[in-house]
Amino acid sequence: MPITSVATDTDAYTLTVVADFTVPLRRLWDAYADPRQIERFWGPPEYPSTFTRHDAVVGGVSTYVMIGPDGERSGGYWEWEAVDAPHSFVVRDGFTNEDGTPNTDFPSVRMEFAFAETALGSRLTTTSHFGSLEALEQLKAMGMEEGMRAAMAQIDAVVEDLQAFAAGRATEVQLLGDTQARVSRIIRGSVEQVWQAHVDPSLLGRWQLGPDGWSMPVCEYGAEVGQQLRTEWQNDESGERFGFAGVVVEAAPPRRLVTTERMISPQNPDGAGSPETLNEMTPTPVDGGTLLAYVITYPDAEVREAVLATGMAEGMETGYQRLEQVVLAG
């Protein structure tokens, strides 16, 4: 059990939890910054969470849902107010309604997470600030303290699992709910380098080529909201050609890019009638490089299954290897 103390201050309206771990500070920080990891412990074991968005940057937002053993759902959000990696971050934590909007029937909490080195590893001090004594007592009565104890008891297993989250692993796909998928990979490069490689057409054309023998004769890309996007690939031997078109919906360089995407072809140059996806790209600095996470929202489960069955993850892995070896290495 990592928790070493829990203290309630009814004058300051705070709940402070101190937990100690036998891992380096950076490893503990990454467990919170990486959506693949935090969802393995943010919530009691019987209420596992799924993070559909996780922006570990000032002004960012995280959204998650915890699903109980009988299928009951409880949604939550974080609004990131301060980040000093890998030493501290501050979020506003609250509940959400079924449509993802804040649930004002319950109080939100300002949570400060402070990471410090110790002789045996690292310590995390989590201080929850409530707006009033009534809010503190309300959330404590709902089992907040017990929930935090149960949730944090799971962190040891996550931070000790170095292999599952280390740099060097191939591109991975995780299904989120009925219509989303998260594609993740650690890229050996800085956040700025990875961002530029994804929005600069001159760089995209050097690595996002797919299998050998394919080229990208059309690459119109950028990161301005409203900008039209178009990429086309060509098999230089057979002449076969396809591509994607879309638009930039949201951009917060170098940490978040949201675009739409639909498939195009010579027979359907505008992609009319093609299923459209929403792609959310989030580069996050972690040990070993940058965790690149794509959350892709499909029109329905059938389209998601069909796209993943094309070998999308394998094709992306080929591109990421080329990105590291050709662009970032030289």
Rank of each mutant, 00 (worst) to 15 (best):
G68D: 10
A329C: 06
G147H: 03
P69M: 07
F95W: 15
E305W: 06
M281I: 10
G213S: 06
R73T: 15
A114M: 11
E117A: 05
Q196A: 10
F89A: 11
D30W: 08
S202H: 04
T50W: 00
Y294S: 05
N103C: 02
V58Q: 13
E232S: 03
P102I: 04
D178S: 10
T125L: 01
G311K: 10
R304T: 05
L308G: 01
L175K: 01
G168E: 02
P24L: 03
D287S: 07
M111K: 10
Y47E: 02
P269A: 13
P275Q: 04
P86K: 04
I186S: 04
G271R: 09
E276M: 14
V159W: 11
V191K: 09
T282E: 13
E314M: 14
P107R: 13
S132W: 04
G43S: 00
Y47I: 10
Y32P: 10
T297E: 11
P299F: 02
R322A: 05
L133H: 09
G94V: 05
E280I: 14
S108T: 14
V83L: 03
V247N: 05
A170Q: 15
V57L: 11
P69A: 11
S49Q: 03
D287K: 01
L28G: 11
R255L: 01
D212Y: 09
G143Y: 05
V17S: 02
P285D: 01
E261I: 01
R206L: 08
Q208S: 12
G288I: 04
T284P: 05
E250N: 13
W42I: 08
F244Q: 12
A293I: 05
S88T: 12
A272Y: 15
E324Y: 14
I38S: 06
